[in-house]
Design a binder for these strands. Structure first.
Length: 273
DNA sequence: CAAGACTCCTGTCAGC
DNA sequence: TGCTGACAGGAGTCTT
């Protein structure tokens, strides 16, 4: 499941498409998170990709006519192939974007991803404009989190997963960061101390940077035909380790459900205040 | 307005 | 072995 580090990695990996002209677009499945615009093929054809960048977990492909917005959702993948080596499309290969020499294939079994088009500045698109700060930007600091957290009555874990506050902190990294910062996931956000804000900011950045350094690999990386587990998986302290010993105190980790998300933590090391 | 529930979808895996 | 059902999860949208 692509989290921010993986999207970042993908974004770097597909840069060879920049300055390439799109010759052909094939859409096989329009029913994604939102319906793929029926005019997309026409819009993209014969345009040059000027820039590919990331905002949160959204990938933005800027062309001369507008911007293609792609989100990978849960199970989405983007693979870059040499045009002549593009494999025959399989069941969940929903879109191909083909240039002179390259082919970008979007695959998404669970179809939580999205492919949209905007002719406006993409940063003003309704899905993008309301996004919070980038976790690795300077803007995301103790003061920011402190201000945003005041008077909030929700629990800290769903709070840091809220993309209107800070983007890119998914379920895995939220659990990991809270463990690192020694904060109980059920702590009421408004009760978090300034020191805890600082610890949490540091922990989030540390966890994300480490994951990026691992190539953004997370779980079940089925890119790897060997079935080798993702590199970062070995770094996980709590996520997916329900009932296993805490790596710090050896006590058994607990799992609870918060905001419909499984949450593993150490009730001894992670305190409410 | 804020908080929480619901929803989309399919692969995987536990249990019978 | 095969079937059934639970589960996982990003994030927009609906409900309270």
């Amino acid at each position: 499941m692509p989290e921010l580090p993986e999207v970042e990695t993908i974004c770097s990996g597909i840069q060879p498409l920049v300055q390439q002209k799109i010759n052909q677009v094939i859409i096989r499945q329009y029913q994604l998170r939102f319906k793929v615009p029926s005019t997309l093929t026409t819009k993209l054809k014969n345009t040059e990709i000027k820039r590919i960048n990331r905002r949160g977990k959204y990938l933005l492909f800027t062309t001369s006519k507008g911007t293609l917005i792609v989100h990978l959702g849960m199970s989405g993948r983007l693979r870059l192939h040499k045009k002549l080596q593009l494999p025959t499309a399989e069941k969940h290969d929903h879109m191909d974007i083909i240039t002179d020499q390259l082919a970008l294939r979007f695959t998404d079994p669970r179809r939580f991803g999205l492919v949209l088009w905007t002719s406006q500045d993409p940063l003003t698109h309704r899905l993008i404009e309301s996004l919070g700060v980038e976790p690795l930007d300077q803007e995301f600091d103790t003061e920011y989190l402190w201000q945003k957290s005041r008077h909030k009555k929700i629990m800290i874990k769903p709070f840091i997963m809220n993309s209107k506050i800070v983007v890119g902190v998914g379920n895995i990294y939220a659990a990991e960061a809270l463990f690192t910062a020694k904060i109980h996931p059920q702590t009421i956000t408004g009760n978090i101390s300034r020191q805890q804000c600082q610890n949490l900011v540091t922990a989030i950045q540390q966890v994300l940077e480490k994951a990026i350094a691992c190539g953004g690999t997370t779980l079940n990386d089925f890119c790897d035909s060997q079935g080798t587990p993702g590199y970062f998986k070995q770094e996980l302290q709590v996520y997916g380790r329900d009932k296993e010993p805490c790596l710090s105190c050896k006590r058994s980790l607990k799992k609870i459900i918060l905001a419909q998300r499984s949450t593993v933590f150490c009730s001894h090391c992670q305190l409410m205040e």
